[in-house]
């Protein structure tokens, strides 16, 4: 009666509040029964399911989400620093592995250090270690080993947000 991975999908999206990403059987199953799941989560929990070509998650109704803000700050600083080093941001985020050590170095030397220090979960390297664990639980990153990680397609949601911010400014300027 229910799709094959119903329990896993519900547990991942609702209880673990994590991304489902391309490559997971649950994601494929979700995409196959997209209409059903959109109705299911809307009718049962009042939550809307956001499903793109390579990631999906349940959008909460909260508009001031600390974790979301922390991720934006983290990714924003990381993108800025990567660009400063002449790297191709989108390619790096999609295909590269990141050594914690390198990321830590970028953040430590960043000109946005003040912002990082004002953010509880990003303030120092031990706070950031917890933050990385949290990102892995939410499946924004995949841990490769103790020294490196890789971003999942989920990061694109936040890049789209940044792009929207820029386009918003562009529109304001035009007006």
């Amino acid at each position: 009666m229910y799709p094959e991975y119903h329990r896993e999908i519900t547990e991942s999206l609702l209880m673990d509040a994590r991304f489902l990403v391309e490559g997971e059987p649950e994601f494929t199953c979700l995409r196959e029964h997209l209409d059903f799941y959109q109705q299911f989560f809307e009718a049962s929990f009042g939550l809307s399911l956001l499903c793109q070509s390579d990631y999906a998650f349940l959008q909460s109704a909260r508009d001031n989400d600390t974790l979301s803000r922390d991720i934006c700050i983290f990714l924003g600083v990381l993108c800025y620093e990567m660009d400063r080093e002449g790297k191709n941001i989108m390619e790096e985020l999609s295909f590269s592995t990141f050594a914690y050590e390198d990321v830590e170095r970028l953040l430590e030397l960043s000109s946005f250090r003040e912002v990082l220090e004002a953010t509880k979960s990003l303030r120092d390297s031990s706070s950031r270690r917890n933050f990385y664990h949290l990102l892995a639980r939410r499946r924004l990153i995949d841990k490769i080993d103790d020294e490196a990680f890789r971003f999942t397609p989920g990061h694109k949601y936040f890049l789209e947000f940044a792009r929207g911010v820029a386009q918003g400014i562009g529109r304001e300027e035009e007006e």
Binding site: M15, R69, C72
Partner: peptide, 29 residues
């Protein structure tokens, strides 16, 4: 696209605690 992403981040990082953030997902207990 990349430039847009970057200028978006920079605009956001100028006032990171006052700017709105995208609605993410929250754990249900």
């Amino acid at each position: 696209t990349e430039s847009e992403i970057l200028s978006g981040w920079i605009f956001f990082l100028e006032r990171p605690f006052r700017h709105e953030v995208p609605s993410f997902t929250t754990r249900s207990y």
